[in-house]
Computed example of a mutant assay.
Amino acid sequence: MRDLIARAFAACLRSILAVLLPAEGRHRTAPAKAAEQPSGAPVATPWPRSPYAEYNADPTPLTGEDTPLVRPFVIAYEKAFEAQRARVAEQEAQRQRRLAVAAALDGFDVGPDVIHGVRVPMSS
């Protein structure tokens, strides 16, 4: 049984080495050259074409402008981050407005000095 396994292993190893390391020495046989086809003849494909290939065939090559370079989840994260930043800015502006109203109720004028391009005199 061991002899049978050893011979099978040796045969497999020999066939793998023959594919990976072909003998092309001076006295050894070289692989047969493929016959050249005329320039007008169609080139034979190694695999049969799918019947769906003619429907999906696109004569124009892909360009970089047609495909997105960034993954969609990165864009979604950036949009969410910008929305969060806008909410925080609005909350800060509202906090400042509430603080101005609270100060005005106590008698402090903290409003803007310029309204619609006109300087407002500050009352004392």
Rank of each mutant, 00 (worst) to 15 (best):
M1I: 03
D3W: 02
A6E: 09
A6V: 01
R7Q: 14
A8R: 11
A8W: 10
A10R: 10
A11P: 00
A11C: 07
C12T: 10
C12V: 02
L13S: 06
L13F: 09
L17T: 07
A18M: 11
A18E: 11
A18N: 11
V19M: 04
H27V: 08
H27N: 15
H27G: 15
R28V: 06
A32S: 08
A34W: 02
A35N: 06
E36V: 06
Q37A: 13
P38Q: 04
S39R: 12
S39I: 13
P42D: 04
A44G: 01
A44Q: 14
P46D: 08
P46M: 04
P48F: 00
S50M: 01
S50L: 02
A53Y: 04
Y55A: 11
A57R: 09
P59R: 04
P59V: 00
P61L: 03
P68K: 03
P68D: 06
V70A: 06
F73T: 07
I75E: 11
E78W: 04
A80P: 00
E82D: 11
A83R: 05
Q84Y: 12
Q84G: 04
Q84M: 09
R85V: 02
A86G: 06
V88D: 14
V88W: 10
R95Q: 10
R97L: 10
R98G: 00
R98E: 15
A100Q: 15
V101M: 08
V101R: 13
V101D: 10
V101Q: 13
A102V: 02
A103K: 08
A103I: 04
A104V: 03
A104Y: 09
L105D: 13
D106I: 00
D106R: 10
F108C: 06
F108P: 01
D109Y: 05
V110Y: 02
V110N: 03
V110C: 14
G111M: 01
G111P: 00
G111Y: 01
D113I: 04
D113P: 12
V114G: 08
H116L: 12
H116Y: 08
V118W: 01
V120Q: 13
S123Q: 13
